[in-house]
Nucleic acid binder design. Sequence first.
DNA 1: AGATTATCTGAACGCGCGTTCAATACAATC
DNA 2: GATTGTATTGAACGCGCGTTCAGATAATCT
Lengths: 195, 195
Amino acid sequence: MARKTGSHSEITGPRIRAVARSLFARYGFAAVSMRQIAAEVGVQAGALYLYTPDKETLLFELLKAHMDELLAAWDAVPAGDGPLARLEAFVRFHIRFNLDRAEAVFLSYMELRNLGPENFAVIEGLRRDYETRLETILRDGVVEGLFAAPDSKVASLAIIAMLTGVTTWYREGGRLDRDAVGDIYWDMVRKAVAA
Amino acid sequence: MARKTGSHSEITGPRIRAVARSLFARYGFAAVSMRQIAAEVGVQAGALYLYTPDKETLLFELLKAHMDELLAAWDAVPAGDGPLARLEAFVRFHIRFNLDRAEAVFLSYMELRNLGPENFAVIEGLRRDYETRLETILRDGVVEGLFAAPDSKVASLAIIAMLTGVTTWYREGGRLDRDAVGDIYWDMVRKAVAA
DNA sequence: AGATTATCTGAACGCGCGTTCAATACAATC
DNA sequence: GATTGTATTGAACGCGCGTTCAGATAATCT
């Protein structure tokens, strides 16, 4: 027996990526075997290699796609009117986007070390791009006298770390909904960089 | 050939833990083999089992010891005069302690998922203890009207995430020394919860 | 209907894994 | 200098790993 009825690469490919993302996020890249991924997809291990040259590349493509989507999604957010509005937009965007893709976020922050040097550099570069987006907002605000941040680079890293931490405790259906979380974090960020 | 001259359990035990902490932090728990640890210690793999019943317990004991030391170290910090002084002490303590033990911090935040449920619960409980220390400071400050934090639990998690993030970018001998980093973060935290 | 192509199976490859244990070498004690 | 106890070796256990590939099946094309 080989191919099952109705199986196609347009289905299997995305399914492999979704399953891999989920399992990598839950158990860690090194702890998940190609056979486990294949089993969850409903396919033999060898079939995975129709869709990825090797395990590390599978991880890299997940991370790369996530970072690309993150940057594209932020760039699609309407530019607010001035640094304050743009900062608020950034805070709310980052929380919303990260909660929507908790698994991919987890991966991007935890499994970078499983990439070879070249792949690592690519992801690291995209991350720096994203951080620079925020840093620019902060710097603009400082210039206009709206913000007081003694070190805009450190401030942007601090803010991103704080916002990303939401994914470690937020649970759907819990005490707070997403908008309430956004309000709380925006309040803290706004004050943290206030002039 | 068996034991080498001068080898004793008082030396090998701590060395195993130090090597394991370092390798786990660098490559991840699942990606490091007992043979790699043994090789770095200068011993055969079997000898590790004189010091730990299995690999997971080795990880658990590293995490447990780290959390115990974290709580003990914070409790040894002189209680400041009022919530503002205590918050400043917390911020500077957390940064200093985490930078001193970057490997253990990394482990504690990334390899929890490799523990069984009981071991996981123990570490999780200690972490919650630590978070509660900060939350109490915030709550006291809110009561006294010094702080404005709409949700002290979320605020404490946000602050800890922000502070812990220092370990991901700080490099010894870089542009900023530890005190300068402490100043920047204290400035942000102070304002973030300001009334 | 027959040939071709895309998709997948199932078995195999060599290797390293966590862990166990009898044998052994050294240190301490008598 | 013999005995005892501790620290360690080195080989072995069964198992699962990532990856490859010839063969089988289903869909598509002519």
